[in-house]
């Protein structure tokens, strides 16, 4: 069975501030799950807990029923893109992907393959510090695809991509899900999510406001945008904090 991502009753506090309260949802194989919410709603925190980067106050986040931290070669199961490429600025893309590959026993030939795949073949020997935002996103995707994982977890992946890049990404994610893979992507851009998601999870103020197939969540609303503002109580207008 392909990787299922399940988030169960997650809670998280930072000092006295509640970041997440009782967040529960799933991302199923063969489907693209859009994780939608205003900035500061708890999207990144949820994904960081799922990837074992941050600790939950309560609840659990599981990949195929196991916490991420227990996976032996995690990059072969889950590929993730969080803030930026995760590459050190003084390294080249090739050098970055090479160490990532060796950390999970991934063959070196994959480095060239993923660079081709994301359109960075000509920039593989450029220092990452000289990359544009869009190139950084592409490099992050290259690292995520390195281990040919069943699941992709992407935090705001269209940030910095040009229209052509967005279209390319959309096709890539669609193809991944159609091949039976799991895709979970967060965004604060409703249009992007509406274009690609099969399932929708709407988060607002650290709570899940709605979850289900796209058409079910938006039923009774004129558009996803209407549904979003109704569900989040206009929270998008008081966008506080940032995506970390």
């Amino acid at each position: 069975m392909a990787a299922m991502l399940s988030i169960e009753n997650l809670t998280k506090r930072r000092r006295s501030r509640v970041i997440l309260s009782d967040v529960t949802f799933r991302a199923e194989p063969g489907r693209v799950t859009g994780f939608l919410g205003p900035n500061g709603a708890g999207k990144s925190s949820t994904l960081r807990i799922l990837l074992g980067l941050d600790r939950a106050g309560g609840g659990r986040a599981l990949v195929n029923g196991r916490p991420y931290r227990e996976l032996r070669s995690p990059l072969r199961t889950v590929g993730a893109v969080l803030d930026g490429s995760g590459a050190h600025r003084s390294r080249t893309a090739r050098a970055h992907l090479s160490w990532v590959a060796s950390s999970n026993g991934i063959p070196r030939r994959r480095v060239g393959e993923v660079l081709d795949l994301v359109g960075l073949a000509d920039a593989g020997r450029t220092r990452v510090g000289r990359y544009s935002l869009g190139m950084g996103q592409r490099l992050g995707l290259a690292a995520a695809l390195l281990g040919e994982p069943e699941a992709l977890v992407l935090d705001e992946p269209v940030n910095g991509l040009d229209p052509e890049g967005i279209r390319w990404l959309r096709r890539l994610l669609r193809a991944h899900a159609d091949a039976g893979g799991t895709v979970l992507l967060s965004s604060h851009l409703m249009g992007e999510v509406a274009e690609i998601a099969d399932d929708l999870v709407v988060i607002s103020g650290g709570r899940i406001a709605a979850a289900g197939p796209l058409l079910e969540v938006t039923a009774g609303h004129a558009s996803l945008e209407d549904a979003f503002f109704t569900l989040t109580g206009g929270a998008a207008h008081r966008a506080d904090g940032g995506s970390r």
Binding site: Y68, A87, M135
Partner: peptide, 17 residues
Amino acid sequence: DAGGGRQITATLTAAPG
């Protein structure tokens, strides 16, 4: 310009231990 971000994210997702 390149999206910020730190390598520790890549390191700990690649090797959670």
